[in-house]
Design a protein around this nucleic acid. Structure first.
Length: 134
RNA sequence: CUACAAACCCGAACUAUCGCUUCAUGUUGAGCAUGAUGAGGAAAGUCCGGACAGUACAGAGCAACCUACCGGUUAACGGCCGGUUCCGAUUUAUCGGAAAGAAAGUGCCACAGAAAAUAACUACCACGCAAGUGGAAAAGGUGAAAAUGUGAGGUAAAAGCUCACAGUAGUUGAUGGUAACACAAUUACGGGUAAACCUUAGGUACUGUAAUGCCAUGUAUAGAACCCUUGGAGAGCUGCUCGCUCAAUUCCUGCAAAGGAAAGGGUUCAGGGUAGGCAGCAAGAUUGCAGCAGUAAUGCUGCAGCCAGAUAAAUGAUAGUAUUGGAACAGAAUCCGGCUUACGAGGUUUGUAGUUUU
RNA sequence: CGGGAGGUAGUUCAGCCCGGUAGAAUACCUGGUUUGGGACCAGGGGGUCGCAGGUUCGAAUCCUGUCCUCCCGA
């Protein structure tokens, strides 16, 4: 499997799963990124399924929303490998949704570092959860 | 050369690494590899017009809405092209706006003014001692607007009462033009407002691709109330009226009317399931070039081409080269034809005016 | 994708249909009342009527375009 790929199967697409994520999932914020996540033992077709989003209220123009979503995906794509390995080793299936909160267009390098912090935090949470699993 | 006006074009290139959509080929258990492919002139606003789909599409009247100089163009249009009349901007080129009807009827026209539409305050003329009666509408002042304007004749004083010129409207024409209109003759003289109601002429069925058709999964061939089965519940045809169309049967009792049973149908209520896939959906009122017809919009013919198709939704990141030190407005979601609005650096062509040189 | 409503004083709204004076409440300012404050009484200021064109003698109001805000349906 290619290391830096980000194709359809890795994306969070199902309406059912997305609704479940927002209804039952937890979240934390590493400004300007808010991370929603759930862990599941139920088998999915890929260990980590990810979606991105921007509020249409903060960015009225579709071009701006598209640009932010592309930058979020890019930042995630480059740094996701560690998260996938941890998820595999813990035999968990993870749903993640990344929401951009700020009202100004981001610089890619800044976004990259904050994304790194966010993914590290998520990785530690995966490590904690199985012990406290019910 | 400068300024201005109009029409049109373009929409930051290349290399490397990683990565994405769709398609094709190979191989395959998932998948992987290779190759091709991938946003706009406005994709936007949603202001018009269609295509397409559904509603079981005889239709008539009313209502509602839209359009409004004339001709052409088109699948269609409120768009576009050409022309007519009037108004405005500019120095010109040129550009912008308006144009069915106020002489069918109703309403409105603040303040001021005698009067805002069947005119008569001051003033004028005649009669009368006067009060007043009659005539008449030139002059005064008010107002955005005052009974068609100017000049002459005319009269007791006046007046389109008459005449000349001008204006508006109607009628007529073997006149010119397809027509708007122009021209001529003749008749009349009537305030403005239809982006007030309205009248006239022409037109419009409604709902939208999350339409619609099908497959899979799954629940419950389930439940309650009321009604109906040709004397018809209800549905459809346009919002309303008329009218029309569609719409589900057997048994038992009874002479019949009718009643009962089963089955089926309809409306409403309460509740349950799905949250996936395929088609629609990418070859078309298509794109480019050339020729022909036409003032033009546009049409016809020939040759060549295939040019996004997603569904939490594909074009990005990093580094470098070049450049005016970094780029504008901005992202397809059923598809076309327009309109409107936003916009960077420029370029091309044509025209007008000015300056210089010859 | 489709449909609807609204932009007027600092704020919340009326006026628009049927065109001629922009108004109410509250807030603000001044004075009175009170020992002082609040409440109350009297007076006052404050408006490109979202923006740009047009119709009209005259436009917040009518027409057209445009910008912004909010709501609804699937």
């Amino acid at each position: 499997m290619k290391q830096f790929s980000f194709h359809k199967k890795e994306k969070l697409k199902s309406r059912k799963l997305t609704d479940k994520l927002f209804a039952e999932g937890r979240s934390f914020t590493v400004f300007p990124i808010k991370v929603f996540y759930t862990f599941s033992d139920e088998a999915l077709d890929f260990p980590v399924k990810t979606g991105v989003g921007v509020s249409g209220r903060n960015f009225k123009k579709a071009t701006d929303r598209n640009r932010i979503k592309r930058l979020l995906r890019e930042a995630f794509r480059i740094q996701k490998e560690e998260l996938i390995q941890i998820a595999k080793s813990n035999h968990k299936y993870v749903g993640v949704f990344l929401l951009y909160l700020d009202k100004t267009l981001p610089e890619f390098n800044v976004l990259k570092t904050t994304m790194h912090k966010a993914l590290q935090k998520l990785s530690t949470k995966i490590g904690e959860i199985p012990s406290a699993n019910n």
